[in-house]
Design a protein around this nucleic acid. Structure first.
Lengths: 334, 334
DNA sequence: TGTTAGACTGAAAGTGCTTTCATAACCCGT
DNA sequence: ACGGGTTATGAAAGCACTTTCAGTCTAACA
């Protein structure tokens, strides 16, 4: 049992002729003596030999490859978008190629080489800032592209209005009678290669508070890394102040869970003593009955895949710039 | 303007470097000086150069692509394994291609065509039953393969001992003084194309109970589909009986959460009135402080990827048949 | 029988790219 | 200014085939 894939050299050896002859048998059989050809043929199927290029070409015909460029492959929100993409693709004949980006160089490297390699029919780029030059290159090379959570005039885009999201949260909490409301989010994240919408959410949140005549003192805004544990600790600080907030809006569900845990540790009842809101509506939010601002993550992935497939089969369609709706998911925590 | 399609030689000439450098710019941009890279890049799009995929595939040892065949792409446990795979791959130059399987035909189709198209260096197959003939075909075609959650003599395998997992859960609950313990799981799932380890978990669970002189009456075993809502409903039935259990072991964390919700609806305190255990230890379990049996999902994915890469670079390594350890994660719910 | 036009076949030269290896150019502490 | 360690680059050796070119062999024709 040879585990190696056979080449024409193997076939040549077995049938006792030169590789040129093998090649001829494959490409112009009539130029080869019947006797020799038969010998070669039997060697060919004895080895189950399939010329590589041909195999590839045959397999590729009709198969579209679509790529996803994403940071934070480990974060639930990204996974959920990916899920949407996969769901949309699963019933069609498409391959899903995933590129996990975890540094600027990585990002630039991929964006630079993907369009050139022409091995992808379409590309979905999640939460990564793309520069003008890069957008143009993708566009010029005819790689259909959909951006999620970022924006460029030349490419299809799917976004949400983070500012409005922050406002929605603030308005809801105000409506429920809260006047001291805290904010917790990853305001100054270390990664420069990805897009971080937290500042916009904070801006909208602050705007709505001020619009209602409330203030957002410095002491009620804390920054914590995007993990449950860090957020829990940050929330403890927020709640340990002399005049703690009666509600906290966390810029992501993961962080909201951290807040909930902190509250539990401090024996605060939710929502009576402390109202908690998140952002995203990842699966976890439903499980935990977390009131949150939903951006339909699965749907954004699905939509991206669909836009892509439509553009691939019908390249003249016009560019789509979609703004996905945000909805308040009223559950138990606020 | 030459009418010929440009090659790296042309690009090299224009930008005044060698073809090696061009190749490097394309394949590992970070290995070439920024200044040079820019010069090359501008030459590249000045010529609208596109490398010929065929030549490239030939020159490269393999394709640098590894595939994952998985059912239930939407389920957290699968996503977590995938995450492990992606993490391991991200530091190597391998593309991750995902094939979402959602029917038997799908599965057979993929397995039949993947070896033919030789466009993959390695394959990870998750929770899918593979037949002898198929295993042999993969093996003979030199596609390195790792099976997760299934077993075949010819291929690398990564498994857990589900029976033992069930036993662990039972023993722990017994130790905590419980004598009426219920079981909830997706015992008779409809999908025939995937592997379902629930029965084994139940067997181990039952075995341990009986070993301790306890019985597991029919009434304390309920089957529910693998969703939180269905499990919640099933749990309500379980808890609505004349003599309800004081503890429930759910065959997955998702279902355990359903049980927790049901308990909350019925005003049962956890763990005082009802102890709840899950299985898997998905992220959610930690967030919800769920006591559970951990199978290290991320790790299994990582390991699979690593075995694969080792075998690819060194094909003579011997087959690995790994049994991953299970650990009891003691948290708040039991 | 001696030529000779084909028909076959193999050696070797591409094909367009990747990768290894050696070298040259730097960079840092001393 | 000098070893010791990177980093950047080019020369050259593949990779799996195709194609050209020249040689061998045969069969047919004078």
């Amino acid at each position: 049992m040879a585990t190696k894939k056979p080449t024409i050299y193997d076939v040549a050896e077995i049938s006792g002729v030169s590789i040129s002859t093998i090649s001829r048998v494959l490409n112009s059989p009539n130029k080869v003596n019947t006797k020799t050809r038969q010998r070669v043929m039997s060697a060919i199927d004895q080895l189950a030999f399939v010329p590589r290029a041909e195999a590839r070409a045959r397999a590729m015909r009709g198969t579209n490859r679509i790529g996803v460029l994403t940071p934070f492959f480990t974060a639930p929100s990204f996974v959920q978008r990916l899920r949407g993409v996969a769901a949309a693709l699963s019933r069609t004949k498409h391959e899903l190629v995933i590129y996990a980006v975890d540094s600027v160089e990585h990002l630039r490297g991929y964006i630079a080489s993907i369009p050139l390699m022409q091995s992808l029919d379409g590309l979905i780029i999640m939460s990564l800032p793309i520069e003008d030059k890069e957008a143009r290159r993708l566009h010029d090379n005819g790689i259909e592209t959909v951006l999620i959570e970022s924006w460029h005039a030349l490419l299809n885009c799917i976004c949400i209005d983070d500012v409005r999201g922050g406002m929605l949260a603030a308005k809801y909490l105000i409506e429920r009678g809260h006047t001291r409301i805290g904010f917790l989010g990853d305001i100054e994240p270390p990664e420069r290669y990805a897009i971080h919408p937290v500042k916009s959410r904070l801006a909208g949140f602050r705007g709505a508070l001020e619009g209602a005549g409330l203030s957002l003192p410095r002491s009620l805004v804390v920054s914590a890394p995007y993990t449950q544990a860090d957020s829990q600790q940050a929330a403890r600080m927020l709640l340990g102040q002399p005049r703690p907030p009666t509600a906290i809006f966390a810029a992501s569900d993961i962080q909201a869970v951290g807040v909930m845990k902190a509250a539990r540790q401090l024996n605060l009842r939710i929502p009576e003593d402390l109202a908690v809101m998140g952002f995203d509506d990842i699966d976890l939010a439903e499980f935990m009955d977390l009131t949150t601002i939903r951006q339909n993550l699965d749907e954004s992935g699905r939509l991206a895949a669909e836009i892509l497939m439509a553009k691939i089969s019908e390249p003249n369609r016009r560019l789509r710039h979609v703004r996905m709706p945000l909805t308040l998911m009223k559950r138990q925590t606020a």
